[in-house]
Design a binder for these strands. Sequence first.
DNA 1: TCAATAAATGGTAGCGCTAACATTTGTCAA
DNA 2: TTGACAAATGTTAGCGCTACCATTTATTGA
Lengths: 337, 337
Amino acid sequence: MKSTGVTIADVAREAGVSPMTVSRSLREPARVSAKSRERIAEVIERLGYVPDPAARALAAGRTNVIGVIIPSVTNNVFSDVMRGIYGVIENSPWQVQLGNSRYVAETEEALTRTFLSQRPAGLIVSGVDQTRKTRELLINAPCRVVQIMELGEAPIDMMVGFSHREAARVATQHLFDKGYRRPAFLAARVDPRTKRRMAGFEDVVRTAGAFDPSRILATSAPSSAALGRTLMAELLDNAPETDSVLCNNDDLALGALFECLHRGIDVPNAIGICGFNDLEMMAVAYPTITSVKTYREEMGRIAATMILETLKGIEPEEPVVDLGFDVMSRQSTAKLL
Amino acid sequence: MKSTGVTIADVAREAGVSPMTVSRSLREPARVSAKSRERIAEVIERLGYVPDPAARALAAGRTNVIGVIIPSVTNNVFSDVMRGIYGVIENSPWQVQLGNSRYVAETEEALTRTFLSQRPAGLIVSGVDQTRKTRELLINAPCRVVQIMELGEAPIDMMVGFSHREAARVATQHLFDKGYRRPAFLAARVDPRTKRRMAGFEDVVRTAGAFDPSRILATSAPSSAALGRTLMAELLDNAPETDSVLCNNDDLALGALFECLHRGIDVPNAIGICGFNDLEMMAVAYPTITSVKTYREEMGRIAATMILETLKGIEPEEPVVDLGFDVMSRQSTAKLL
DNA sequence: TCAATAAATGGTAGCGCTAACATTTGTCAA
DNA sequence: TTGACAAATGTTAGCGCTACCATTTATTGA
């Protein structure tokens, strides 16, 4: 059944030591004499021994699994975060276990329960909107927990993210600073982060006395450039006084731009466009597109690093990391004044 | 140490049966009387029992892990494939374990070894270019194996993909059919699939007597729209007679388009552009971009389904599935004749 | 030289579950 | 009513490893 079939006992016998010494030389080499260590290493190499993680987990009462719970595998934002996580974990003895909550709180709770029952080495969860029960599970978790994506009031343990509301505020203010007066907001499937961005948009627009609900478009469809075109078309038809759009992400922004190009609308002079996330493409589009740069891969990297460090007994200097954001001002909002 | 602490013995005691009956009611409910089954289910629910996968794996000699080895987590193509795999596996008792070979054959071999030592329930690997040793490991694997991404001569076990060479041939022929005579080929980091596409391009271009190495551009940099612009700029400067480009993927195609737009070059009349993969965005770009549609998510879905089916004892009707491709002809190659 | 101490190693038990076989209980025909 | 057989359940042993504690061996200072 097993491919290699080599167990720790085989290695021990061959190296002339007890299984315990082999086990130690693998996990705490400093506690084994150099001579034994070398001999054991040689035998391991020769026999092609690979420790059985299941046996190890059962005996040690913990696994080498770092659980990651995200609400979507479709959303590129999470692919970027995962990339950051994988980058850190790839060359460590730990492994990632991915769970997809599909934006359903009950699923998230079930996943949390399942993950915890596996005694993970650490847990990375998305957002701050867990159910009370999930929160409780995580607070009592026998491992460290990092919340990613956003910042919030009461961190369960550690946290890496940025303020979506503040980012949207700054982006909206950017539109006003560039001379736009009647900005709209486009969003696809509304998740908690989107809600906060929408709130940030509203904050600034209300302050400027330019609030108009007909310039806020959201749908339940998943985000795409095609949807960006559709929403933009709808916006132009129903709220023709609109002079700029803040898009909840860059797919929508690209779609919005394409719709304008198709209609022969002058971007940025007739319509200004600002995206969110700053995909690599925004800087090379024609015209180049203003976007709020977010640090998604870095978020994953830092979260994973925090887990690995605490596993080594090193506490992070700051348990809550604000990665911030940057509005990358480009041609799509460079209106002639 | 353990969060729930509830074991199968606790459930058994509470339900008034032996642990074995509990175990069976979970794995082979048909072999347990309805009465016991219900009682056990009630107790499990009440105590919040979750089986320990490590103990299960150790006792049963196999895990619920389906290993997936891909060469890149950065490349969107693989995100799409992973999405398909996750979609199928998410609601099953199986779990995905991802390994990144980084296009290094030795890493792939090491990953294969590690995965196999964990006695996976199945294995999904990318491509057909394994080392001899890796192939051998996979052929003797104690689980089913699916090769994805492309088709090849000697399948290790099962296979889902399409012919990249043929796809590039058809795409190149499309350019000629549309009236272009001096097509170029743009590629980023060259992997085995890219190589085959390049060969397909060359096949057709040579047959047409239009082969010119100065119209084949490849680099070691990872693919991006920015790179597409750079390569397109280089191409326009060094091979100005070029009248069309086949891009190895859609990022490059978008970049190429943007470069043309920036330079005021008429697409499709001065330059025709064809991408590869047919990202959702290609159909809504301005102009819309011709691309070779590939079925990436479906590839993952089918591969995962094949594994799950064989796990249930159901053999696939065809062990080798050719997903084909489709050239989506759009404005970017609709030259006025 | 010899205790006292540290360093290295080993023995025992058990993690939670399931395979394989053993036993008990239920069902049915004669 | 009983034996034959199937269905349901139980018993035993062990998967491969590590925690814990016991023992052996090396090292040191007086």
